[in-house]
Lab assay of single mutants.
Amino acid sequence: SSQSQGISSSSTSTMPNSSQSSHSSSGTLSSLETVSTQELYSIPEDQEPEDQEPEEPTPAPWARLWALQDGFANLECVNDNYWFGRDKSCEYCFDEPLLKRTDKYRTYSKKHFRIFREVGPKNSYIAYIEDHSGNGTFVNTELVGKGKRRPLNNNSEIALSLSRNKVFVFFDLTVDDQSVYPKALRDEYIMSKTLGSGACGEVKLAFERKTCKKVAIKIISKRKFAIGSAREADPALNVETEIEILKKLNHPCIIKIKNFFDAEDYYIVLELMEGGELFDKVVGNKRLKEATCKLYFYQMLLAVQYLHENGIIHRDLKPENVLLSSQEEDCLIKITDFGHSKILGETSLMRTLCGTPTYLAPEVLVSVGTAGYNRAVDCWSLGVILFICLSGYPPFSEHRTQVSLKDQITSGKYNFIPEVWAEVSEKALDLVKKLLVVDPKARFTTEEALRHPWLQDEDMKRKFQDLLSEENESTALPQVLAQPSTSRKRPREGEAEGAETTKRPAVCAAVL
């Protein structure tokens, strides 16, 4: 046999249950609850290399294929790409003598399909299967379609040439079993990697079954959420508030809700932002270029202005709740996480202390139980975000031990490091100062900020419009641009040419 590394010779191994799959997660993409704000000051410096380099560890398999027929071997997927077919160049070659004697062998292509993985959001991997055969590759009886790919989820059954000719079961060793999710959700989405997690739940990458488009699904544990919100009269209202707010909003710089499922837990389906959180971008770069800050901040102002015009105060604006559309420097941003939002009543007064301390406005800290506050709290938070983006460190921090965090904020005395700000323009610093004003009545509004000289930049605004146009074009394009080929190089076993392929839609398939 010419099988590559990772293939075992026996096809009769006992199949494990899916609970053996491991679970991976990374930083929070968007969480309903406010958790302790991640610290920006503690960015690790590059460490000196050791005298002796450690040995390379043996790579762990990321997936496993269990053979369902004699003549096929099990495969431990270690590499990122595997070709399957009769050709000797394939990493998994159909060359077992037992297999060659079967009637089905002649229906398999020289290069029938490939399984591979690509880097997705949060640097996690996504597994795909890609059909290159004349007679078809099927996943859970659905045709992939020649020249098309679809994501592979845990426990997928792979069939060759005929939908009933099941050859492998695919085990993704990095994700959960699909069966743990409600059927209504599974009918519409293929669940994938964990993108982030918080005290009350997690955010998962998923794929729409009909279109193969990526989405983010925010899962909120009702049990954990009820415990964490025990002081509230009705904890469920917080989730329902977020859903109702998101459904009503329609702005290019605000995250869109696509679906909602109320089962044992809450499942909020949101558009996916491939670039992750602004927080991670700031930490990764230490600070952002001023031109990049301007492009992002302009969009934040437009989003918050839209919220305020619609009578909504976000109340928890922070870099973790600003998501980026891509890994590119120039990209769209979207505001997310409306769990603490407040729809303005007639009095415009709110007395609930919520939000993240580092970003809270002075009037929030001094008015607990005594007075109210209004939309100006969001403008203060925007000032803190702009400060961080321009400088790479927070204006107020618990680690300045000589003054408490509350006193720093209520006095408006931010930590100004001259040598850092020497590289920032006077106009940018002036806008920061106009937003970090203790008196909410004297603080800049979103309208005033948008009129500030720093943002009178036609090149930046043109760039934003171009990015918007690109997004609109990409969302308007159909996901499947061509029909699967019906040509046949070899006959199917026991049926006429093209008899099955043309009847089945290529579900969740995307043209390369």
Rank of each mutant, 00 (worst) to 15 (best):
I335T: 10
D407Y: 07
L323G: 01
V424I: 12
L288Y: 01
G275N: 03
A361V: 04
R375H: 10
A510W: 13
E271C: 14
A291S: 10
E448R: 03
K258C: 09
L278D: 09
I257E: 12
T501I: 14
E495G: 03
R504Q: 00
V507M: 11
V368E: 04
L467G: 10
I245R: 01
A509K: 08
D280E: 08
K247H: 02
I257T: 08
P319R: 05
V368Y: 09
C331N: 07
W380A: 00
T352A: 03
L295T: 04
L382P: 02
I335G: 01
E271K: 12
F260Q: 11
Q465H: 15
N321F: 00
S474L: 01
S425A: 15
L295P: 07
K286M: 10
L450Y: 03
P491I: 14
E495W: 03
S411R: 08
L477S: 07
K463I: 14
I243P: 00
Y267G: 01
T446N: 07
A476W: 15
L270D: 09
M273A: 03
K256A: 05
Y306Q: 13
L429K: 06
G494Y: 00
L349F: 09
T501S: 14
C253M: 14
D466N: 06
D262V: 10
L390R: 02
S341I: 05
N285Q: 09
E271T: 10
E320W: 02
T486Y: 07
K258R: 05
L249M: 03
D330G: 09
L324R: 03
E493K: 10
P418F: 03
G498N: 14
L307Q: 11
F261T: 07
E329R: 13
K256N: 09
L467V: 00
L468P: 05
T475F: 02
L468I: 06
K427S: 14
R351M: 06
K334V: 05
E447D: 10
T358R: 15
P252V: 12
A361Y: 04
R462N: 15
I255L: 03
K281Q: 10
K433H: 14
P357I: 04
E419N: 12
M350Q: 05
V377A: 14
N285L: 08
V507D: 04
P440V: 06
V368K: 03
L307A: 13
Q483C: 03
K256Y: 12
L344G: 11
R462F: 12
T370K: 11
D459Y: 12
A499G: 04
L332M: 00
V282D: 01
L323V: 15
K318W: 01
R315E: 03
E274S: 13
G383A: 00
I388N: 13
I312H: 01
H452Q: 02
E398L: 03
S474Y: 11
H251M: 10
